[in-house]
Simulated scan of single mutants.
Amino acid sequence: MELNTIKPAEGSKRPRRRVGRGIGSGLGKTAGRGHKGQKSRAGGYHKVGFEGGQMPLQRRLPKRGFKSASLKFNAEVTLSDLDRLEVAEIDVLTLKKSGLVREIAKVVKVIKSGELKRAVKLTGVGATAGAKAAIEAAGGSVA
């Protein structure tokens, strides 16, 4: 077999349908468009979602909600997560390596959920007011 001898499988290719080329072709006169009406005219057909003048579905339904595109770059860590982590100094890179936050996370914040029994030092990681109080009560610090 040579590259120049390769042909498509028998019956897999059909000739183009040439419409409007006389009676004998079977697709003359109206060229398969039927008689009259908007669909038969040149350049005349409705846009996507058009319902003949009736208020279209996308305009009848209420607009609802919003999802921020930047949310995927934010991450939350609980106090109990920090307690399980066996590191004294915690930054974003440490949290990524431990698998507590996703690799694409840019902003990390500690939330007050669970308990912290040991002192930890946070650098480059935010904390809510309650979480900050809990970390400082355990002898840690938030930078």
Rank of each mutant, 00 (worst) to 15 (best):
M1S: 14
M1A: 15
E2W: 05
L3W: 04
N4F: 07
N4I: 08
N4M: 02
T5H: 15
K7G: 00
K7N: 08
A9Q: 09
A9M: 06
E10I: 13
G11R: 06
K13W: 03
K13H: 06
R14W: 09
R14E: 12
R14D: 05
R14Y: 12
P15M: 06
R16H: 02
R17L: 15
R17P: 00
R18N: 07
V19N: 04
R21F: 02
R21Q: 12
G22T: 08
G22R: 05
S25G: 08
S25K: 06
G26A: 07
G26M: 05
L27V: 09
L27D: 01
G28M: 03
G28Q: 03
T30A: 13
T30M: 12
A31H: 11
G32H: 08
H35Q: 14
H35I: 13
K36E: 14
G37F: 07
K39N: 11
S40H: 12
A42Y: 05
A42D: 13
A42H: 06
Y45N: 10
K47N: 06
G52Q: 07
G52N: 07
G53S: 06
G53D: 01
Q54W: 04
R59W: 11
R59Q: 15
R60E: 09
R64I: 09
R64W: 13
G65T: 04
F66S: 12
F66T: 08
A69L: 14
A69S: 13
S70E: 15
L71H: 09
L71E: 14
L71Y: 06
K72R: 14
N74D: 11
E76N: 14
E76W: 14
E76M: 12
E76K: 15
V77Y: 14
L79K: 02
S80C: 01
L82F: 02
D83Y: 01
D83M: 06
R84W: 02
R84G: 03
L85Y: 02
L85C: 08
E86R: 10
A88Y: 05
A88V: 14
E89N: 12
E89C: 01
I90R: 03
D91V: 02
V92Q: 13
V92A: 15
L93V: 13
L93C: 02
L93R: 14
L93M: 10
T94W: 00
K97H: 11
G99T: 10
G99L: 08
G99E: 05
L100T: 07
V101H: 01
E103M: 05
A105Q: 03
A105G: 04
K106T: 15
V107H: 13
V107G: 01
V108H: 12
K109E: 09
K109G: 01
K112M: 04
S113W: 01
S113Y: 03
G114C: 07
E115R: 07
L116I: 15
L116P: 03
R118T: 10
R118Q: 11
R118F: 00
A119P: 10
V120P: 00
K121F: 10
K121P: 00
K121Q: 11
L122F: 00
T123D: 13
G124N: 08
G124W: 00
G124C: 10
G124V: 10
V125F: 01
G126N: 11
A127R: 04
A127Q: 03
G130T: 02
G130M: 04
G130N: 12
K132T: 13
K132D: 04
A133D: 13
A134L: 03
I135Y: 09
I135S: 01
A138W: 04
S141W: 00
S141H: 00
